[in-house]
Design a protein around this nucleic acid. Sequence first.
DNA 1: TTAGGATTAG
Length: 780
Amino acid sequence: MPVQLLKIIKGKSEPPLPSHLQKEDLTHLREGLDHTNKYFQGIVILSYPVTKLKDGTDFFKIVLKDMDSSCSWINSINILIYGKMAEDCAQVVLHGDTIVVAGFKLAKSPTAQEDGRHACHLEVSEESGSAIYIYSQQTRTAPSKPALVSVAPKYVYTPLNRLKDGTVVNLYGIVKFFKPPYISKGTDFCSVVTLMDPSNVKLTCSLFNRNLDCLPKIYKVGDIVRFHRIKIRAYNGQMQGITTGGFASLVFDGTVGAPIVPRTSSKAYSFVDEERKTIEDLRVWAASNLSISEPAVKLSGVEPMLFFDLTCQLVGKAKVDETSFLLKVWDGTTCRYPTWKVRVEARDLEGDEDHLCRLQDLTVDILVYDNHVHLARSLKIGSFLRIYNIHAKQANANGEDASRIGFHLHGGTGYGRGIGVLPESNPDVKDLKAFLESVDLFDSQDMESMSSVEFDGTSYSDADFESDLKRYQQLPVTVLTDHLDLDNTDLKTILSSTAPQEYRVRAKLGTYKPQKLYQAVKLHCSKCNSSQEVPHGDELALILQGSAIPAPNPELHNTSWYDSAMWTTQDQKQRKIAIHFVRHEKILQDPEKSLLMIEGGTLKEIWKLTKKFKCIIPVRSTEHDLALLDLSVPFLFQGNIKYYGCKQCSTPKPIKSLSSVVAEQEEPSWEPTEIAQVLGIEPLQYAFIMKFTLVDRTGALDAYLLDYEKFFKIPASEILSSDFLQQKMQMIMNALCPPGGKLDDLPWLECFIKSYNVRDAMNHQVCYQIFDTTVAEDVI
DNA sequence: TTAGGATTAG
């Protein structure tokens, strides 16, 4: 059967895929390789309407994203489906479905430059023996019975300002406050959740269930929930939500751009395509209307008297007495203050002895009380926890420990106090795990060499010393471009100093973010210091389509400084396109030096023009003059580079300001900065924005890198259109932080970092930025 | 039933 619907049951395909088929990674799809018994699997991120080719063949195009592609810059590929398969697939495929394509033909993608996807596309049809397997997210029928398609029930969601006493409703909300599930005084677990939605109304819900797993898996304020069948009651003059027998919930990460993966214990749940849009909209609304993104506190940032949430790993636990229990945890950083240790007998301490011993300087003791003891006792060693509302309290002033900080999880559930277990799939856990692994390796090396010196003086041989020395003397992979007279400062000293200051450091790169390097390229405004994502080709194409309205105004054509041409497309849309060639005697004969403005052009048309002409400026007609488009699209296309302007800092001027350049200059060079200035645009610069976790023997520190070209010696503006530069960047990062390498084997980085203060009404944080540093010549 | 957000006081 060429198109088949399958299911995933307990992580396995049901029915299974044919056994001769092997999965092929996106990076291994290349022309000239044999893909006969291979299949490609991806998630549908885009699909187009079915069309008919000139010969009458049905044609359906979808875009699949490779969810396993870890390092590749390019993670999506076009799939072209022909003939009967096109119709069959189009009937059932939905955004978000996982699709397996086998028996495909691979061919060069003519649109790769424009859409930024894989250099090849896959062609499939029944005639060429292809097969498509669809793992849908919903209950759907096989394509042979189209009359039964779309059997998912339709849910209606009530905004929070429309809730009525005594009703049972479905709703969406953004978590404004929550108490992680705790054992209530009755028979059930309880979780209290306060939600907000764009109607700006709050709703506090009391959720009960005997099974902890049936309560919503909320991990942080800002998460988005979808509740089905929640009962609404009036209480103290306000509406409140309470679980009913049929209550069900989904929880989503509330971060704009994060993958939309529902967290639920429910095995069967509906989630249709339009709900994806609801989540995206709520994320965007929350980002600009709710202040929920408090920076996470690490142990290194703990101050006395602070109440904070800690994401950490459980290393050891012990019963202390009837009302208190000890948790030994770490997050890879060290506290700046001496910490109070709880005395327990070694035999009462549960956890790996070696691990506990090795990490003794990195773990902290958290004493949990009363209602939290029961849950604490059940925690598994090694699990990742978020402990909410820990109190960092000065130890008892009577003893010698007065200067030490004790960590307490007091009884009660006020302020969301409690303990949550995070799954390993949680993005914060993934980050923490990578960091802990690097710190642990560093630390274990330290312990091993120390213990061999302490217990057996002769075992640390000259050869060991030589090899250590050699390792230390190895040329660093980054070098300084200035301030060579400064001495190195260790990270612990930096962490305990006030900002702002500048330091020279010698450290290793424990880990970095983003791991997918294409995510590091941003557009940065040096004036307001804001940064934004580089718009995707599809997004641009859509906006430019919108710019086709209004039609070009012929009264603005053929002026003293440009000549115009206009025509209408032959397709159904009858779109009007106008091109205005800027006139200049020196450059008129030479298209490669000329600038033109275009009205009503698509992204594809503009892209074609950039091959022939030096500069393309997309414009629209107003009553009296041509004007720039909205700054969501580039104000200028030059070669492969799209130049954007900052919406906040630009004050666009009429296009006729450009005529001064033509009048004044003998041969305009059309420098983007000059064009921007004349048009009142504050240009955005392409930049790599990354977070480097630097590690040395004294501690770990996150430093930001904001680089246009100096650090990597790669222009950030050019990397998105160059396979070669992308490979080069990946190689550099592999040299700085070899994948899978033990920290001890990692190369040294020499960097300058400057500390600075980030303050708002509630928080104060010291941040660090790398400057005057570059990748060493021999690395490139 | 339980909780109904709004710090413990070890």
